[in-house]
């Protein structure tokens, strides 16, 4: 599957395209198939996302898993500061990255 991701313009936060808008949770991301480019241009033009790009991901029961480790780090947060990730209460969350 293919996901569309980027950063919020004002806050810089990592965001994922949900089909109707943007979410900071990769679990909400949807497969954009071959339609990513046109969504990307429209959303970037409207400044609802900054520096967007399309990535490969693998569907799993828990939600999409980005194919590249860099995007998994982006999806969760720094592995060395679990307290600053999106899942601060789950000490094992970092295992998902590796």
């Amino acid at each position: 599957m293919k996901l569309l991701t980027g950063n919020e313009l004002g806050s810089g936060a990592v965001t994922w395209w949900t089909g109707s808008g943007w979410s900071i949770h990769v679990e909400d991301a949807v497969d954009v198939g071959e339609g990513g480019e046109s969504i990307l241009h429209a959303e970037e033009g409207a400044r609802r996302v900054n520096a967007p790009y399309i990535i490969d991901a693998i569907p799993t029961p828990e939600g999409p898993r980005p194919a590249h480790i860099k995007d998994r780090v982006r999806a969760l947060g720094p592995t060395v500061r679990p307290d600053l990730t999106l899942k601060p209460a789950d000490p094992a969350a970092g295992d998902w990255i590796i």
Partner: peptide, 10 residues
């Protein structure tokens, strides 16, 4: 002005 866009934020 020293502002980069990195993995998680600016």
């Amino acid at each position: 002005n020293g502002l980069y866009l990195q993995l998680h934020a600016y």
